[in-house]
Amino acid sequence: MNFKRQFREGLLTKNPVTVQLLGMCSTLAITTSLFNGIGMGLAVTAILTCSNILIAALRNFIPSQIRIAAYITIIAGFVTVVDLLLKAFIPALSQSLGVFIPLIVVNCIILGRAEGFASKNTVLASAVDGICQGIGYTLALVIMCVIRELLGSGTFGGGLLNGGEGIRLIPSQFPAMQMVMPVGGFLTLGFVIAGSQWLMKHLDIKNKKKEAAK
């Protein structure tokens, strides 16, 4: 088990959004303000870590024929818990994310990591995997949010800073509101993935040069 490698993978080289292309529904739909992005990211991280731990703990008890049904039940349970807790304690976030909270159940990141990682690894490794992948997901969401919010509404930190209005960086008559509409979601994600591909290639070349120098 290698914590540093797992962290690096979650953040960049195997980022759930930009590389594995998982959970794109929520990535595109809710990334319109920083508050949404961070809230969704943390909710998914919490659910992913819990479900990873439980599934890793039960991996030897669940017969393989019914594993998907069992995983979905466990995940749906955690999602409902988070949904109820948010409704009771952070109603503003629950209101803002709406139906996309229950839809975390079918977010492929969680089932994907359950099937691809937690069902084959120890509890500890799965917990670390859940946290790292969750952070990677949150990072991607936050980047998307910052870009879309800045270009679409001209603000930074909407829902969080400056009493919920966000800090205005572009005068209100200029922003292209299409960026917070569906179009902006697709375009931004396209550019973010392209950016991460470029970055990885760049790092790859750098690493190779380093190795060659040795």
Binding site: S33, S153, G159, G164, M181
Partner: peptide, 17 residues
């Protein structure tokens, strides 16, 4: 309560100017 687009329709409900 509402589920309008944040930053556009959601302004109708916001406690902003």
């Amino acid at each position: 309560s509402h589920t309008e687009t944040s930053g556009l329709g959601a302004v109708a409900a916001a406690s902003t100017a």
